[in-house]
Design a protein around this nucleic acid. Structure first.
Lengths: 211, 211
DNA sequence: CCAAAGCGAAAAGATACATTTTCGATTGTG
DNA sequence: CACAATCGAAAATGTATCTTTTCGCTTTGG
């Protein structure tokens, strides 16, 4: 049998292999999307704008994403998973703490991740809402993930006898909604410092979940 | 001088004058918009669908509205003003009551107006969010109107010595956001009765504003 | 240095809508 | 009844994308 030793069909370019170049384009597109969706808005940004801002040709755009909607979903996922990871880490660092302390850690971590960039605020609190059926679906899925985390934490605290039982789905939804609108308003008007915002929201979370 | 006695350029049709016919078309369009925007979504509804659902020709559509965006804005205004009117009426009916009672009356009235129709919930809590720059602007304006009402009520209660001072802008934003997400979730899943929802949200409002 | 991989820019093609205009059929009015 | 307003339906037009394809220029690897 003669071995068909196939030379890799791909070639290195500017020192990077195909996968790296593709990943770099994808990243530039996501950065451009954060910027344009987060300042001008998803609906009013055509793919062309996205491509020129990212310095990616439309040919390559379609190599990375199916369409504009897919970019928004990827961006939203990235932002949200970032925040959820930060939250999980913060919780893991206070493993045996009482619910109040865990709550402060979690909310602070979540908040800081999001408000570190006003464009993130706008994308995850405004642009993804009702953008399209598919986007709306992932938004609701992430929402369920947050509700699950809150509920899990809450039930554990109840089991430890730290707080009385309550409807955590309701509390989580109230907290999520309150956070969204307060943070978005803050990012628009900056009426208080980030620290003051944090204090106010941590207090709110405490009231809603353990108060 | 010969008087140019102009016969009215308009004629009655099916018993209605031009203004009435036009108003009827407008109303049918708004009803169709409530239905389509509130079940399928604003972004995915083309003007054609709107027109056929409303039994209005596209020619007449453009006699009533500039474009689809104008319909959404008109619909949103109608829903919101409905709710604000109900709230104002409820407040007017308890003129000398303490803040807690006024709050219960206001929140109940607001809630009932909105949840009376799940399509209203979706339009005012989801579809208008980030739909377009102009829509977003009116959404934020209505939000400011609600904040102003809440603040006004709250300051009055402070003046009467019923509650200590607080940041009502923050409290109002938190309440609005919490209401939005809780009510939207309720309209999707109906995990509790409308009465239970009402009770939970009134309690939440009381905590946020006077607790 | 050459053949092929890869690239960016831009043309070309395809849609989906938005918006305007036309047209024949109704319906009041005098 | 006649004629003009009005109508609904649909054709025609315009436009802004989206998406695919072409093309000539670079870069790489042998």
């Amino acid at each position: 049998m003669t071995e068909a030793v196939t030379t890799p069909a791909t070639r290195r370019y500017s020192g990077r292999d195909a996968g790296e170049r593709s990943a770099a384009r994808r990243e530039r597109l996501l950065e451009a999307a954060l910027d344009l969706f987060g300042t001008e808005g998803y609906q009013v940004t055509p793919i062309d704008r996205l491509c020129s801002a990212a310095k990616v040709s439309t040919r390559h755009f379609y190599q990375e994403f199916t369409n504009k909607e897919a970019v928004l979903i990827a961006l939203h996922s990235q932002i949200t998973e970032d925040a959820l990871t930060a939250t999980a880490t913060a919780l893991a660092e206070a493993p045996a703490a009482p619910i109040e302390a865990r709550l402060v850690a979690a909310v602070t971590a979540y908040l800081r991740t999001i408000i570190s960039d006003p464009r993130r605020v706008r994308v995850s609190f405004v642009e993804v809402v009702g953008a399209s059926p598919a986007v709306e679906q992932t938004r609701l899925e992430y929402r369920e993930a947050i509700i699950a985390t809150v509920t899990h934490e809450g039930e554990a605290a109840i089991a430890r006898g730290e707080i009385p039982p309550r409807d955590f789905r309701f509390a989580a939804l109230a907290l999520i909604g309150a956070l969204n609108s307060v943070v978005y308003d803050w990012s628009l008007h900056q009426r208080k410092s980030a620290d003051e915002l944090e204090v106010a929201l941590v207090a709110l979370a405490t009231t809603l979940l353990t108060g």
